[in-house]
């Protein structure tokens, strides 16, 4: 199985998230985990972040993706896709970022073991 080529990360579990081409061009793809996470693609690079804006409860997957950042459409809070750091108020708390690999056109994400997923 191709996932074997991915190194294990302690405290995290690799899971197939989606097909790479299922991620929309200008927004994210929200995954049905708890807490929810979202996959973003920017300039052929793939990212996975917690989906919920740390300013208020809203899905970052619905946001605008450009210049290496995702902007929440509600109040324009902006987060660095690489680090999860807030780039613009009203957000002041980072969102968690998660390791990502693409194997054979599929996106795999390593989520903390505490995250609930549907099997």
């Amino acid at each position: 199985m191709s996932a074997m080529t991915i190194d294990d990360i302690e405290g995290r579990t690799w899971r197939r998230a989606c097909a790479l081409d299922a991620v929309p061009e200008d927004e994210g793809l929200r995954l049905g985990t708890l807490p929810p996470v979202a996959v973003f693609v920017q300039d052929e690079e793939v990212f996975c972040l917690d989906d919920t804006c740390t300013h208020d409860t809203y899905s970052l997957a619905e946001g605008w993706v450009e210049d290496g950042a995702v902007e929440c459409t509600l109040h324009l809070a902006k987060f660095d896709l690489r680090t999860g750091m807030p780039l613009r108020p009203p957000a002041s708390v980072p969102v968690a970022v998660h390791p990502v690999k693409v194997v054979d056109g599929d996106v795999y994400v390593a989520l903390p073991n505490a995250y609930l997923t549907k099997e």
Binding site: E27, D56, T57, Y58, E62, G63, W64, T73, L74, H75, L76, P90
Partner: peptide, 26 residues
Amino acid sequence: TSKTFTCTYHGWAYDLEGNLINVPLE
């Protein structure tokens, strides 16, 4: 082109149909 519409005064936000979906500090 937008996904939501947010009032710049206090940040009340509406969806594409005009439904109120967020008030800051609810």
